[in-house]
């Protein structure tokens, strides 16, 4: 039984240029204790998905179709009142900008307390105190720093507080939206370790959103690669990163620099931004796809199952199978 399952979800933004489909017909499931990574470049719709799962879509966005099943509710049908009960309690979010997510004029522990009290108004002061200390221990912030103000914290510590606040009510699903992007490599490493170990201890569902494939690979066992609002390839991390099938995944992996892969780097050609106004179901990578421009395919992709867990969304099944 999946913790949350998303089926055929499409989300559009109403803009002056017409309807932009930021998310186009995506389906995936998250199991408890199996972190899922959403990887993609800016504008691929990964943050929109995170926001949808928190019920925080901006006013000009709307869910065009699809369903999100969570605890026998369809989250797409919830009103703001119902969202308020779920948000922070069952589904929590770790935000990107740790500097801005904390209130500068409130002590850090008060902010954590607020996160607890919002959803457990009847909690006794003794329990509350115990819980706050527990949380600070969990994210490894010394107790003497509890009464500090956010500006006295370093970037990494602020991010830890954000994590503590997300964990405050024992949520079943945590959405981490680029939690380490603003941090230095050394701090990033610590926070990633933190997230990994907490995920083991708490055994929650986790969606980890990032543009950095190495960061996602270090946390998540399942990977969804996104491009232009579509999931183009999904599978376990060994499958997706070890034997990538979709041409976009290959491009993405090829342009990733690490300390020992210089010779593997593939320079992508100048690319166009995906056209988000395309009809639903059209391949958005086609404009940049070598296979498509060589073979002149239909532009209507279908899911190609490579293994039980590994699939790719592409127009030319033959080439993908052969390459594999």
């Amino acid at each position: 039984m999946a913790l949350i399952s998303i089926k055929n979800l499409s989300i559009g933004y109403q803009t002056k240029g017409g309807l932009l489909k930021a998310v186009d017909n995506i389906s995936f499931e998250i199991e408890q204790g199996r972190p899922l990574g959403l990887v993609g470049e800016s504008g691929c719709g990964k943050t929109t998905i995170g926001m949808t799962l928190m019920g925080l879509l901006p006013d000009n966005a709307r869910i065009l179709s699809g369903s999100i099943d969570f605890q026998n509710h369809d989250l797409t049908q919830l009103g703001e009142d119902q969202w308020r009960k779920i948000r922070g309690k069952d589904i929590a979010m770790i935000f990107q900008a740790a500097m801005n997510a904390l209130n500068p004029v409130m002590r850090v522990d008060e902010q954590v307390i607020e996160a607890i009290v919002t959803h457990k108004p009847g909690i006794s002061p003794g329990d509350l105190d115990k819980r706050v200390k527990e949380l600070f221990d969990l994210v490894e912030i010394p107790r003497i720093r509890m009464k500090d103000y956010p500006h006295e914290y370093s970037g990494g510590m602020k991010q830890r507080v954000i994590i503590a606040m997300a964990l405050a009510c024992n949520p079943q699903l945590i959405i981490a939206d680029e939690p380490t992007t603003a941090l230095d490599v050394i701090v990033q490493d610590q926070i990633l370790q933190e997230i990994r170990s907490l995920q083991m201890i708490m055994d929650t569902g986790l969606i980890f959103i990032s543009h950095d494939i190495a960061v996602v690979a270090s946390v998540c066992r399942d990977i969804c690669v996104m491009y232009g609002g579509q999931i183009v390839e999904m599978g376990t991390r060994e499958e997706v990163f070890g034997t990538p099938c979709h041409p976009y995944t290959k491009t993405l992996l090829g342009s990733y620099l690490s300390l020992n892969n210089e010779w593997k780097v593939i320079i992508p050609t100048m690319r166009k931004a995906p056209d988000l106004t395309l009809k639903s179901g059209c391949c958005r990578f086609a404009v940049n796809c070598k296979i498509c421009s060589n073979a002149g395919t239909s532009g209507i992709p279908s899911w190609i199952n490579i293994s039980k867990t590994h699939r790719a969304l592409c127009c030319s099944e033959g080439i993908i199978r052969k390459k594999k």
Binding site: V287, C292, S293, N294
Partner: peptide, 12 residues
Amino acid sequence: MPIWIRGLPIDV
């Protein structure tokens, strides 16, 4: 709608 010229779409 893009027009396709030699496999490359040009958004007119």
